[in-house]
Design a protein around this nucleic acid. Structure first.
Lengths: 192, 192
DNA sequence: ATTAGATATTGACCGCGGTCAATTTTAGAC
DNA sequence: GTCTAAAATTGACCGCGGTCAATATCTAAT
């Protein structure tokens, strides 16, 4: 027995997403209110939750869209082979992630899926980020004493650390890119 | 003109904290409801918010207390000199951090202070964690090509990464300690 | 065209964190 | 003791995410 997915459903969903994008474009992610979205879309509140498990689920979809577009761009160019090149290639991704505190928090909260069945757009994106970086590192001028998947996990860890500290008054003196550069050089090309 | 802090204030605050601890002991952090706490403490809801900026502020105090006690313990023992010893020394801290998903999320959210004036108990704890690890690394058998404060920041980044992945179904096969060990060996004692 | 069962939508309602003007209590000055 | 200004407490109220039984709409079988 197959699902009979109605046209109406797609239309409503599209209007909700479009309305949400409008709000975000004008006021940012944090300011988004479900009531505003449904009003702009011309549907009842309950309809929203028939389409998205909760507010975060919609946020995940919208954010992952943007992030995946950034990664598309990064993958389209020539694979970076050095630390500075890697940082440049990932700059759009990191820039989006740190543009709004609310965004960063939500990304972290959803970066892992609790169950395989629940892998959301954000968890999937982080997996993709990891894979892309790993491919780059396979061919890059970096240490080869540990496997590149480990190196890629480290890049992710350091990127997140650098973003966290960007929001931290105790470490506000150094810029995100500078800090990440120091981290990645020490991680990927150790002098020992 | 100094503040005239009343005895009543201290008493009310103590009762709120004690009531909160009871709830947490019985039902965990996530289940805590402000209404339950004020009822158990026998005060009105508004009183709660006269004592704590918001619910998170109380959580911060309670969690930081526990975490600082763990660090006290870690500092009391002999300073660890190798990766396995460091992992053992930090085990109580990491164990608490990953015991409840809600706790981990809140810790991350408050790990940095937005403004110097707003350094909360959690941000302060992370600073202390960093300093303790740095001291250990100063005397430990680890790489010396980069300063120990950088190494300590890396330890923190990898610990958080390992905790995140613990909650991630995509990486659930490896245990937290095993993963952290792999990370820290690659970070602190690279073969190049 | 009719009908039936699945699917989508509705909006009143709930839970819970947080606010604030009004009220009560406190601690010092006299 | 009395008065007074500051500090603490109160609880009705609000905002907003999320629920669910009732209702409306669609689709396919006949």
């Amino acid at each position: 027995m197959q699902k009979a997915i109605q046209k109406r459903t797609l239309k409503t969903r599209a209007r909700l997403i479009s309305a949400a994008e409008d709000v975000i474009r004008n006021e940012g992610y944090e300011a988004l209110r479900v009531e505003d979205v449904v009003q702009a879309a011309g549907v009842a509140k309950g309809t929203f939750f028939a389409h998205f498990r909760d507010k975060d689920a919609l946020m995940e979809i919208l954010m992952a869209d943007t992030l995946n577009a950034c990664l598309d761009q990064a993958e389209a160019g020539k694979p970076p082979g050095t630390v500075p090149e890697i940082i440049v290639a990932l700059e759009p991704v990191h820039s989006f992630m740190t543009a709004e505190r609310y965004v960063f928090d939500l990304l972290i909260r959803h970066s892992g899926a609790v169950a395989i069945a629940e892998i959301g757009p954000i968890a999937y994106f982080f997996e993709r980020y990891f894979r892309v970086v790993m491919m780059w590192l396979d061919e890059a001028e970096v240490r080869k004493d540990v496997p590149s998947d480990l190196l890629a996990e480290g890049v992710q860890a350091f990127a997140i650390q650098a973003m966290s500290l960007k929001y931290c008054a105790l470490h506000a003196s150094t810029s995100f890119s500078d800090r990440l550069k120091v981290y990645l050089e020490a991680w990927l090309t150790p002098a020992r």
